[in-house]
Amino acid sequence: MLTITPPPGQRRGQAGLRRSLTTLLAAMAAAAALAGPVAAQSGDSAPETVQSTTTIPRAVELGDVEHGRELWEFECAACHEMGPGAGDGIGPQLNRVFGRRAAAVADFPYSDSIRRMGRDGLYWTFRTLDAYIENPYALVSGTRMSYAGLDDEGDRADLLAFMRLYSDQPGDIPEAEPTARRVEVELPPEVLEIRGDREWGEFLASECTTCHQRDGAAAGIPSITYWPEDRFVVAMHAYREGLRPHQVMQNIARRLTDEDIAALATYFATIDD
């Protein structure tokens, strides 16, 4: 098995941002198609054997399981285990990850950030896994998973098709999902090129500073100052599209336009007191 050396996280520039936004919007289209999470079980009762691909036509439709297996070995297996007897490694075991709540493996030393998302109600579905694997920080800002992300959408689908085999009822993938996933949402290039209007950002930020302290002090509510702008933008889109589950932040993000988000990102990145 090949061991991967994960490159340092957070080194994505504009290209990474573009990919993340595309995923977010595509995921939004898929969202409606996804039913609520299946009853999550803890992973210690792992399935005895991996079910044969012939019994799971829809999982196959999701992507190329064999290619997914190769990607798993190459990209994930250095840190994660799946299958009979899987235990925790650098990362938690990933049996039955579909439908599982984020940070649900007992005793695994998760980051505070992913624990928080789990408490907020983040469940692993095709949509949320796809976003996490593409760019872990978009979904979970402070995740300990130092993995730079899998850029190619097709690769992610193949990988998830493979991982799906280790979850309950792998054949039971919602009808519309494989199709919906392929709906391409063209993101207008101007969205990515928006230069934040700092003064407008400062005015908008006055709404945020009722909860997020300007000096970055964080007790109970995370700090949002001095983030790289692209990470900030991606996080806000993740709330706006409902990928991140928090009620307060979803409510706040829903009324922000792309310009508003860019302005806020600029302001908080350069806040000066």
């Binding site: 408490r119 009722t210 007790a219 109970g220 509510i221 307060v248």
Partner: peptide, 18 residues
């Protein structure tokens, strides 16, 4: 989640008085 909501309220309190 309820505990987290309480912790967030403390975050908010410190935020608004600041």
């Amino acid at each position: 989640l309820r505990r987290q909501t309480f912790e967030e309220s403390i975050g908010w309190y410190n935020g608004i008085v600041a």
